[in-house]
C-alpha cells in the first residue's frame, strides 16, 4: 500500500512539466526514503534523477519498496487537472495495476480523483557515483534559461568554459558566433540573484543545446540552478525542490573526433 499526501501539490505538477519532455515513460521508485525516479531519454544521452524525500510529504506511507511504471504524458495530463493550491494524494494498492491521484481544494469543497493505468516498464538504473566536480556554478535559473534559449537561435551546441574569470557560454552556427560570459557576482540584494563560481580546475565541455533547453523546463521549481562539471564527465544540472529534494539532469558531452 502506497499513500503519499503532498500539501504543496503544485510541486508535483511542476516536476512533471520538468521531466515529461525528456522521458515519455518511467518507473517511480517508492521506499521509506522517498519518492524517486531515474530515467534516461530514448537516445541515452540525458538522464533525469528526481528525489522527493518522505519528510516533505504531510503523510507518507510506503509499506514496501515498490516501483510503479507510469506514462509521464498521461500523468501530466491528470496532474494538470489539479489546481495550483490543491493538496495531491497519490495512492496505489499492492498488486494493483492502477494508481489514483486525489486532488483536494484548500477549503475542502472540491475533491477529485483520477485513476490511471500503470505500465510495465523495463528500465535500467545507472550507478552515478558521488563525485567532487572540478567546477560548479550557481546562477539564477532564469538567467540559465535565457542563455540556453538565446544561444539556441544561433547554434546547436554550446561550449561551457569555466575559468577563474567566470563562465563562458559559446556557440556558433551558419549566421555567426556568440559568447556570453557570466562573472561571479555575490554582492546582490537577493541571494537568488547571485552567480557563484567555484573552480578547482578550469573545465571546458561542449553540449547539445536542445537537451539543456529541455532541462530548463524545471525553472519554475527553483530560483537557482547549479551546473557541475569535470573534464570528460557528463554535466549535472540541478534544481533543488525546496528542502524536499531535487531534479537533477545529467548530459553526456560532445566529444571531439
Amino acid at each position: 500500500m502506497l499513500e503519499l499526501r503532498l500539501v504543496q501539490g503544485s510541486l508535483l505538477k511542476k516536476v512533471l512539466e520538468a521531466i515529461k519532455d525528456l522521458v515519455n515513460e518511467a518507473n517511480f521508485d517508492c521506499s521509506s526514503t522517498g519518492f524517486s525516479l531515474q530515467a534516461m531519454d530514448s537516445s541515452h544521452v540525458a538522464l533525469v534523477a528526481l528525489m522527493l524525500r518522505s519528510e516533505g510529504f504531510e503523510h507518507y506511507r510506503c509499506d514496501r519498496t515498490i516501483s510503479i511504471g507510469m506514462n509521464l504524458t498521461n500523468m501530466a495530463k491528470m496532474l494538470k487537472c489539479a489546481g495550483n493550491d490543491d493538496i495531491i494524494t497519490i495512492k496505489a494498492d499492492d498488486g494493483s495495476d492502477t494508481v489514483t491521484f486525489m486532488f483536494e481544494s484548500p477549503s475542502q469543497d472540491k475533491i477529485s480523483d483520477f485513476e490511471m493505468k500503470l505500465m510495465e516498464i523495463d528500465s535500467e538504473h545507472l550507478g552515478i557515483p558521488d563525485t567532487e566536480y572540478q567546477s560548479s556554478i550557481k546562477m539564477p535559473s532564469q538567467e540559465f534559461l535565457r542563455i540556453c534559449k538565446d544561444l539556441s537561435s544561433i547554434g546547436d551546441t554550446v561550449m561551457i568554459s569555466v575559468t577563474k574569470d567566470g563562465v563562458k557560454f559559446t556557440t556558433s552556427g551558419d549566421i555567426g558566433t556568440a559568447n556570453i560570459v557570466c562573472r561571479q557576482n555575490t554582492s546582490v540584494d537577493e541571494p537568488e540573484n547571485a552567480t557563484e563560481i567555484k573552480m578547482q580546475e578550469p573545465v571546458s565541455l561542449t553540449f547539445a543545446l536542445r537537451y539543456l533547453n529541455s532541462f530548463t523546463k524545471a525553472t519554475p521549481l527553483a530560483n537557482i540552478v547549479t551546473l557541475s562539471m569535470s573534464a570528460d564527465l557528463p554535466i549535472v544540472v540541478e534544481y533543488k525542490i525546496g528542502d524536499m529534494g531535487y531534479v537533477r539532469y545529467y548530459l553526456a558531452p560532445k566529444i571531439e573526433e
Partner: peptide
C-alpha cells in the same frame, strides 16, 4: 566535428 557520447560510456548499469 564532434560526436555525441552516451551516458553508458561514463556510468555502469546497476
Amino acid at each position: 566535428y564532434s560526436n555525441q557520447s552516451t551516458l553508458s560510456s561514463f556510468y555502469g548499469t546497476l
